[in-house]
């Protein structure tokens, strides 16, 4: 695998392979000294054009556990304002010797553009509303372990609730979950759905109460206040009442059902209950698994098969 730009780059077998590799990474992460020399001498540069402490830290931790050299290049918005093109920024840093760029950008498609200007591998750490493939992989891994579904998601019903329109997480998750065999239902007001769902392997509902009792996974997305400015929502209170997870709805969940969220949560909006009180909440597992999944991705992009067996 040269790049990871989109879940659509991966076959179901590729996804299974990465999740199996993640099992090894979880094992390494559980060791007293959670570090292997697999990527020693490899230079991984985080190129974040949009703030994200969580994702950047997760990638950084993953790279360090594999002994890669890491460098953070936080591109302030000012350098874009100075008129430096994306191409110049990338070529300048690439000239320092880079094996992989981990790219976060507020513009959809930016990681794909960057592949034209460097020979380094590009790992998409979130682009605009488009894709966040490592989030989808860590979500799959969390469901796989949480529901003990090593062989795939056939028969699972996953509901994704919230601002689908503006969500790279939703776009990636829909593709990954359905590739593994799950049935996916999107739950949102029509204003927060994409203008067209042609070609999306999903069902749509506007009635959370009707769906909640029947799902194996309830995946809540963050809803931002600024959506009210674009007339997409009348008020956060109304959103919360219609689409938030409160204790009444939580009580309707099946006993085995998982509750997930990509973070950061808006408490009192989409998450009305305290997730600590939800037996099915695996939100912190998602964060933990994020490091192992990103180790697997970095290793797949930069490593060679035999290196993983050694340890320091």
């Amino acid at each position: 695998m040269k790049h990871l730009l989109s879940i659509t780059d991966l076959s179901p077998a590729d996804i299974h392979g990465l999740l199996e590799l993640t099992d090894h990474m979880v094992e390494i992460s559980g060791r007293p000294i959670p570090k292997v020399p697999a990527l020693r001498g490899r230079n991984v540069v985080s190129l974040f054009f949009e703030d994200s402490t969580r994702t950047r830290t997760s990638f950084d931790t993953a790279a360090k556990r594999l002994s890669a050299d890491t460098m953070n290049f936080a591109v302030s918005s000012s350098s874009v304002n100075k008129g430096e093109s994306l191409r110049d920024t990338v070529e300048t840093i690439a000239a320092m010797g880079v094996d992989a760029f981990v790219v976060r950008h507020k513009s959809s498609g930016a990681p794909q553009m960057i592949t034209r200007w460097t020979n380094a591998s590009i790992i998409n750490a979130g682009d605009g509303w488009h894709q966040h493939p490592t989030q989808a992989l860590l979500d799959c891994y969390t469901i796989r372990t949480g529901l003990n579904r090593r062989d795939g998601f056939d028969g699972l019903h996953i509901a994704i609730v919230g601002d689908i329109r503006h969500s790279r997480v939703a776009r990636s998750d829909v593709q990954a979950f359905s590739a593994l065999g799950a049935r996916v239902t999107l739950i949102a007001p029509p204003t927060l759905l994409p203008p067209s769902l042609e070609g999306w392997p999903v069902e749509v509902s506007h009635d959370l109460d009707a769906v909640v009792p029947h799902v194996d996974v309830l995946y809540l997305l963050r809803v931002q206040r600024e959506r009210m400015d674009d007339a997409l929502l009348p008020s956060m209170e109304e959103y919360s009442a219609m689409y938030g997870l409160d204790s009444r709805r939580a009580a309707q969940l099946a006993p085995h059902a998982l509750v997930m969220h990509p973070g950061p949560m808006n408490r009192g909006v989409e998450m009305v209950v305290d997730p600590a009180e939800l037996p099915g909440s695996v939100i912190l597992n998602q964060v933990t698994n994020g490091v192992a999944v990103r180790m697997a991705v970095l290793f797949s992009v930069l490593g060679s098969g035999s290196d993983l067996r050694g340890s320091e």
């Binding site: 498609g109 509303w129 776009r171 994409p194 203008p195 067209s196 769902l197 042609e198 070609g199």
Partner: peptide, 14 residues
């Protein structure tokens, strides 16, 4: 604005 922009995650021009 249509199927393609929805897939690509780009704001549509209806």
């Amino acid at each position: 604005e249509g199927a393609c922009c929805s897939h690509l995650g780009l704001p549509g021009w209806p």
